[in-house]
């Protein structure tokens, strides 16, 4: 890929062949398509290989704690809703450690875009099962196979009331960058669960494995406004993996629900000393 203004001279720490490289490339492509500058972007991330993403591109960044990227991003968006905020998280970070925050962010409909790098395994801690690992899958730690059913992020997002739910694949940068643009344009909470291989610890769900299964929902005439159909898509199983926008509906975003924020961002207000003095006098 040609150099972009989002490139940065910082040694990339991902394994060669990692799906994260393609996700990073799709992000940059999307930002260019949206005519954004690095200074216009604020990327918040959690812990794991996905959490490192903003380190490898030019942007404002807050790389927080495991599972807590969404609350950090929520606070920042409440403080200044003009900011373009994206969250890079992983299946362990978002659906495991941060599961409660995932549900709450959807319910708040906070206007940020969540990209979940879903490789169905814990990479940074070397190969333990993640919330999206298939039932019975053996790992070094779960040596007799996992005993928990996998988490279904798309179905969960849908029943929790998410207004933009999409599925991407790291092997299709063109489609993924389009999805990121669409997600960022959506006013309200938007999420893309991105299937990606882990070349080091997931020998089953490989690039090829996905390649043989993914299809583009657009080609099937799927209507993202149809909630019932979206739920069916969310429960399609593993033989055929749908990608694209699964569901889209507009409801008021978090900051549109507050009178004080309708006027302007909290960040833009001035301290009203006269008003405060009055409050203290009458307290």
């Amino acid at each position: 890929m040609a150099t972009t203004k989002f490139d940065i001279e910082n040694e990339n720490q991902w394994c060669p062949g990692c799906g994260n490289f393609s996700i990073l490339q799709a992000m940059k492509k999307a930002f260019i398509a949206k005519a954004l500058e690095p200074k216009d972007l604020f990327i918040v991330s959690g812990i794991g290989q996905a959490g490192k993403t903003p380190h490898f591109m030019a942007c404002n960044m807050l790389h927080g704690l495991h599972g807590r990227a969404l609350p950090l991003a929520t606070g920042a968006k409440i403080a200044n809703h003009r900011l373009n905020i994206l969250v890079n998280s992983g299946d362990g970070d978002c659906y495991g450690e941060g599961g409660n925050h995932f549900l709450a962010a959807i319910r708040r409909n906070i206007d940020i875009t969540l990209l979940v790098h879903n490789n169905r395994v814990y990479g940074l801690t070397k190969g333990q099962a993640s919330p999206t690992t298939a039932l019975g899958r053996q790992t070094e730690m779960q040596n007799k196979g996992t005993v928990s059913s996998p988490f279904n992020p798309i179905a969960t997002a849908l029943v929790t009331g998410a207004g933009f739910v999409a599925k991407g694949f790291s092997g299709n940068i063109e489609q993924l960058s389009g999805l990121i643009v669409e997600a960022m344009n959506h006013k309200g909470f938007s999420m893309i669960d991105i299937d990606q291989p882990c070349v080091s610890f997931n020998k089953i769900n490989t690039h090829l494995w996905y390649k043989e299964r993914v299809f583009d929902l657009k080609e099937t005439g799927h209507d993202p406004a149809d909630y019932e159909k979206a739920l069916k898509v969310a429960h399609m199983g593993e033989d055929k993996i749908p990608t694209g926008v699964i569901y889209k509906a507009h409801t008021l975003a978090f900051h549109e629900r507050f009178d004080v924020l309708k006027k302007k961002p909290l960040f833009d207000y001035n301290f009203d000393k006269t008003r405060m003095d009055e409050i203290l006098t009458r307290a």
Partner: peptide, 22 residues
């Protein structure tokens, strides 16, 4: 803005996110 967080982990991280944003 007053926001009831989903737990105390979120409460402090939200406060910190807002502070980081100014």
């Amino acid at each position: 803005v007053i926001e009831q967080a989903e737990d105390e982990l979120a409460a402090i991280n939200m406060a910190m996110g807002a502070s980081f944003a100014g």
